[in-house]
């Protein structure tokens, strides 16, 4: 393996090359520390020993309660609730979106017994026995709820990829706290990223939905 090259940091001068021998040591040291690379080549095979070559299928059938219906679905213990909904269900529910797959963005938000959760962080088997509500379940008869109507009216969406997650989060929050202030809405949405930048219109929508929900009570 040749690790010839230059490095900039933390060498003090612009463009100063670090002698090869020094670099050789530091890089090899790093690689050995990182994974015990064989001299001569960098072997990247993280799970070589544990490669699931002869792994038996861990498929099992479970029943999920989704949007008020019980649905039988075949999945594995590792299947996330998000993948169960989007991929494993016979008629997949793709309204819930996959974006970061690690609990950062909120695009995969669903309600679990009424509470918003990131479905990418919930194993599907752990949702058995609980009531799952997805964005599709917010308007079961095609009748949109107050948040959905206000989102349309205030243009709380652009590309719309974050919109299902935001709509689910807001529905749970505004129904619980219809008198919420703008600041409280901001805090409630702190787990939902939108790249297009719809937030100001989403806040307007939330406040309008809140007013409507309060009047309806």
């Amino acid at each position: 393996m040749r690790y010839r090259g230059m490095r900039s940091d933390p060498s003090p001068e612009r463009g100063e090359a670090v002698p090869d021998d020094k670099l050789e040591v530091s890089r090899r040291g790093f690689l050995q520390g990182a994974g015990g690379a064989a001299a001569g080549a960098l072997l990247i095979q993280p799970d070589a020993a544990a490669a699931p070559k002869a792994r038996k299928s861990g498929e099992q059938s479970v029943t999920l309660m989704v949007n008020g219906e019980s649905r039988d679905v075949s999945l594995e213990a590792r299947t996330t609730l998000l993948d169960a909904l989007r991929i494993r269900l016979e008629d997949p529910l793709t309204g819930t979106k996959l974006v970061c797959d690690r609990g950062t963005c909120g695009a995969c938000t669903v309600l679990l017994d009424g509470d918003p959760v990131c479905s990418c962080l919930v194993l599907a088997v752990d949702a058995v026995g609980h009531e799952v509500t997805t964005v599709e379940g917010l308007a079961p008869e095609g009748e949109m709820n107050a948040v959905q109507r206000a989102m349309c009216k205030h243009d709380g969406m652009m590309c719309g990829f974050c919109t299902p997650g935001i709509t689910v989060t807001l529905t749970a929050f505004m129904e619980a706290q219809p008198a919420a202030t703008r600041e409280e809405v901001q805090a409630a949405l702190s787990g939902n990223y939108c790249r297009c930048g719809t937030y100001p219109h989403v806040f307007d929508a939330a406040l309008e939905a809140g007013r409507e929900l309060q009047e309806g009570k």
């Binding site: 529910l93 959905q148 349309c152 009216k153 243009d155 969406m157 719309g160």
Partner: peptide, 15 residues
């Protein structure tokens, strides 16, 4: 109002 707003807030929009 966006003509596909309802599709987007109900999860019906297909990406």
């Amino acid at each position: 109002e966006r003509v596909d707003g309802a599709e987007k807030v109900t999860g019906a929009a297909v990406y």
